[in-house]
Design a protein around this nucleic acid. Sequence first.
DNA 1: ACCTGAACACCGTTCAAGT
DNA 2: ACCTGAACACCGTTCAAGT
Lengths: 229, 229
Amino acid sequence: MTTSSPRRSGPRRSLSEDQVLDAAVTLLDRGGASAASVRGIAQEVGVAPNAVYTYFPDKSAVVKALVERTFGEIDLGFLAGRRQKWQDRIERLAVALREQLTLHPGVVPLMIGGPMDGPNALALNEKVLEILADAGLDDDEAARACYLFIVYVFGSIALEVADLDEHGPPAPEADRISARTRVFEQTPAEHFPRTAAASSVMAAYVSTDQFRWGVRRLIAGLTATADAD
Amino acid sequence: MTTSSPRRSGPRRSLSEDQVLDAAVTLLDRGGASAASVRGIAQEVGVAPNAVYTYFPDKSAVVKALVERTFGEIDLGFLAGRRQKWQDRIERLAVALREQLTLHPGVVPLMIGGPMDGPNALALNEKVLEILADAGLDDDEAARACYLFIVYVFGSIALEVADLDEHGPPAPEADRISARTRVFEQTPAEHFPRTAAASSVMAAYVSTDQFRWGVRRLIAGLTATADAD
DNA sequence: ACCTGAACACCGTTCAAGT
DNA sequence: ACCTGAACACCGTTCAAGT
């Protein structure tokens, strides 16, 4: 994934850009989105805080590079099979994207916090547009649908991450569901009867099944006869 | 909106909880999501930094209260008319929600950053479930659809806010579209042909029209015959 | 009960100096 | 070219003291 940097002279650099990003991910996984401080990264890799500025101009550049690298780690190759139904290709892409992002929940707020306009982010965009073009949508509708898709994937993951809050390492899905169930069981039924009644379903929001259901509904909405335009 | 606090004795308190929250909003509007520091708030209302801790136990409590107040400022009363089509009620609720959130873009990341489990947030949830029940969806499907709706509204606004980044005060829609157009025109067409071709539509992602289109597609997906479950 | 000054442990970033 | 120590202007929070 590394954008190979030209070797320079002088005292051998003890670090690589990727090592800095690795340290950031480690801190992010350990302590959530706010844990990736420049000073923390420096300590993690064993240098003085300001040494980080030899590799990146400032903190936002570190974040940007990390986001781009994470986008690059999503394997888009397995979608090559054009023989599959486009609905399945979209669904599999969505699930793959969610899986990758869930691996490092702390990175998610950083991805959503910025413009998502790097090369790897655009490559993902391009892939989605390609699938939607194969589906027979015209350029205009494909662009809109692409955005709808991106919003759903990142929106649902962002809400998931927000719910597990600043708890430490990522918990398995079953644990997160039961934790949410406990919260919803406290919903006062006299004031919010519908929310209380729906609590078991709401607790499952963080499940892969629920996510898949949403993707299918989105697809259904795209293929439905366009009567409202 | 204020949760009326019981009057206490001692030296008259020079501030109210709402004044603290107002100051936070002012800073948020001026400098984006990271600008609402405790020290900044204190300066804004003219007290020492630690005086804020008389009104709120810590910063997260300030954020929580601000988020809750913002949820409360969304007028849900105008949806009372049960005679309207449920599709229109959902759409109007979505647009109202977006309008309210767009007023103070800096608050949006704070809303998404936490669990959205306060009374006013639950009241919104309840309203959506009510409309979906009127639409004839059963409890289970209404709960799932409600989540889909919430994800779309907050996801799309979060991505909007991320794009206008840390520019100062909220710009009018037309300005933001043309700013985005300028960015997308630089997309290298040789590497991302589809993205470049779709750039004019992508620039309009921040428009109300695009947002409405998405809501309609979501509704279409919900009413489409459920063949994929 | 409310507010203050002073302090603590953080943060991102810069600068002059060393190799 | 790379790294360091020291410093600057921030940050959230606590504590003892004043009214």
